[in-house]
């Protein structure tokens, strides 16, 4: 007989992760496509610690079990529009009521709808675990240890992250940048309930005709979301105009052909979206210089 667990708080959840072999279950929308009736699930949705949305001086902090629908309807924090845009395009209402941001990350699908946006916004994840040193001291309150990793580092491949078995992804941290231009496109065979053939997120911050920050992230065209700091740096320092940058991305992107789309379609559309975005960025830079 297999047990499942409904912890009351984060401490209990972390203790279970340390002591037992359990499968963290947040929204369940990916797990339940291939359910294991006998699996020892650790149900997380009810944990208050994973359901908060707040801001600090530097970050938007989103609990890992916050659903897409909760992100779209909450009014406490003014989240970046581009993130909400991506959430609106996830599946349809019944799945947006279940699926969570933390789940989208831990599932680590190359086609995860929010991932290109989170990459473009330089998001990080906060992981928690019980500190092993005090695990067996019953008189001590167990301390929770944390580590923060950039999302780009956390996701390592198709459905692969560097979460250790005893760790839980508890928060997503999004720097409060002041992007003057953001751009998101999901290309799929229909508007709702479709997995992306490809997706693109762009973010730029232009101040007085100076490009301060730039991010281009491509989804569904590699084993993880593709972002290239070197190309971005060359655009920022003026070595690449939009066309040269598009050529650089043409050499970088190596999508595959599968049941959803073809390599050449994916690449062509990605490059078109990148060109469109970079042209808009350049227009903002030019307008800023004129206005100086």
């Amino acid at each position: 007989m297999v047990n499942a667990y409904v912890p009351a708080d984060l401490g209990e959840a972390l203790r279970l992760l340390q002591e037992k072999t359990v499968i963290p279950y947040a929204g369940g929308t990916d797990i339940m496509v291939h359910p294991q009736a006998e699996a020892a699930y650790l149900f997380l949705r009810q944990l208050p610690e994973l359901n908060q949305i707040c801001t600090t001086d530097q970050y938007f902090v989103i609990g890992s079990a916050v659903t897409y629908q909760a992100l779209l309807t909450q009014t406490a924090v003014r989240l970046p529009d581009i993130l909400l845009q991506a959430c609106r395009q996830v599946a349809a209402p019944p799945i947006r009521n279940l699926g969570t941001l933390g789940g989208n990350i831990c599932n680590a699908s190359p086609a995860g709808d929010t991932l290109p946006v989170l990459y473009a916004l330089d998001a990080s994840v906060r992981l928690a675990r019980l500190e092993p040193a005090v695990r067996d001291c019953q008189n001590l309150t167990p301390t929770i240890g944390y580590r923060i990793l950039p999302l780009r580092q956390f996701i390592q491949g198709v459905r692969r992250t560097c979460r250790r078995p005893e760790e839980l992804l508890i928060e997503i941290l999004i720097p409060q940048t002041h992007d003057t231009l953001t751009y998101y496109e999901k290309i799929a065979s229909r508007k709702a309930q479709a997995i992306a053939k490809l997706s693109f997120a762009g973010a730029a911050s232009v101040s007085q005709g100076q490009l301060q920050r730039l991010a281009l992230a491509f989804g569904s065209v590699g084993v993880t979301v593709v972002r290239d700091s070197l190309i971005e740096a060359k655009i920022i320092n003026g070595s690449y105009d939009p066309e040269a940058a598009v050529q650089a991305y043409a050499a970088l992107l190596r999508p595959i052909t599968d049941q959803r789309s073809t390599a050449s379609y994916r690449k062509t559309v990605c490059l078109n979206l990148a060109r469109d975005f970079l042209t808009a960025v350049q227009a903002q830079v030019t307008a800023g210089r004129r206005g100086r």
Binding site: A4, V6, Y25, G28, T29, I31, M32, V33, P35, Y41, F43, R45, Q69, A91, A92, P93, P94, I95, N97, L98, Q193
Partner: peptide, 28 residues
């Protein structure tokens, strides 16, 4: 059985969900 069609939709606490993607243990 993969959340695509909505034929299994029910309301949980008033919210629409596809019941094929809900483990019964998660709704205690």
């Amino acid at each position: 059985k993969e959340g695509e069609c909505g034929a299994c939709a029910v309301l949980i606490n008033g919210r629409l969900v596809t019941s094929c993607l809900v483990a019964v243990g998660s709704i205690a």
